[in-house]
Design a protein around this nucleic acid. Sequence first.
DNA 1: AAGTTTATATTGACAATGTCAATATCAACG
DNA 2: CGTTGATATTGACATTGTCAATATAAACTT
Lengths: 199, 199
Amino acid sequence: MARVGSSGQGKGDVAAKLLVAARKLLDAEGADHVTIRETARQAGVSHAAPANHFADRRALLTALAVQDFDDLAEQVETATFRLPPATPSRARAMADAVLKFALHNPHRYRLLWRADQLDLANPQLEDAMERLYANLLATTGDETRMEVPASTSRSLALWCLVHGYVSLTIDSLLSLQADETSGAPRLHAMVDLLLDDKL
Amino acid sequence: MARVGSSGQGKGDVAAKLLVAARKLLDAEGADHVTIRETARQAGVSHAAPANHFADRRALLTALAVQDFDDLAEQVETATFRLPPATPSRARAMADAVLKFALHNPHRYRLLWRADQLDLANPQLEDAMERLYANLLATTGDETRMEVPASTSRSLALWCLVHGYVSLTIDSLLSLQADETSGAPRLHAMVDLLLDDKL
DNA sequence: AAGTTTATATTGACAATGTCAATATCAACG
DNA sequence: CGTTGATATTGACATTGTCAATATAAACTT
């Protein structure tokens, strides 16, 4: 059984130490460089020890993604919860929060959408994703939760626009000179373009 | 020097055979399963033979991406070139073409944006990307080529919207029930939402 | 024609990885 | 005290990308 807090081991559980090590690797070099063996090395355990806490590499990456989905959801929440729903200013705040998160830690943002590397059936991941989506789709407030009305939704379009822009931006794939430092003004303008005369 | 068509070798150059094998692997299992050794095996050459034609794995994947960028650009062109610029119908046609390409071969579409796996400095890749972007950004026709005006552009917003939707769709990350078979109607509606009262 | 260069192909090796099997350790429990 | 169960370790295996050494054969030079 997993001992609680009995003997004084330096920091915490092995699982926790592994997650810390894996996160450092993710932030430094990206998901592809988060290897089980290097993570174990950084955590100071043998190369097979992680198997007791994470079934395989996918499970380890999924655990990281759960943290990051929650982190992003929280940042979006705190950036928008005070603003009135269905307003351009709230939409801009959401876009800003996502862009800021992704620019600050691109590897984390990329991991969130690497469906091939994650265990999408993981309940914790599902919950964390749902939490984020609940916030994203509540931005324009024209529908409640996951419900998609007849044709489409402003919220969905807004989210796709933001995600597309952010994804391409952090990979420098827009092939457009960025004369603006943060890129946020351009995103603001695009959000306004989508919402103009509609809110 | 590379011999031309001298001796009767079954199909074509080794480089060509490698690309064919690599493409089959890409389509079947995704970029992560396009390994140099398996590609060589499928092409019937030794595991080190590819090194003569592709410097490393990245170069092989880049060669695939060049073909796919060109392919996608061509499909967007043929789907839109007859339609009048700066019209919603042309924008919808562009969106349809991209979505169709991605749904038909998701692994190819994903590869295009895997900046970490591609050699973005490769001139052929740059050309192919530029060709695609020229088409994408000409969809709404409010600017000529790569030129980004003062604030933003409808074209850029349109492209980000389409790319975001398509990316999330092929990875089943929208977490929305798809009661529509193709997903195209929903994308149409979102495109209209962006362009309404502006064209 | 003979010799030399050059491109390309092969074999073999190395370190690294994910994962499995066998074993060891060690605390909790009967 | 002995057993059990969770966890850790070592060792092994197949696979991968890449490099070095070598072989081959065509093309070019003299």
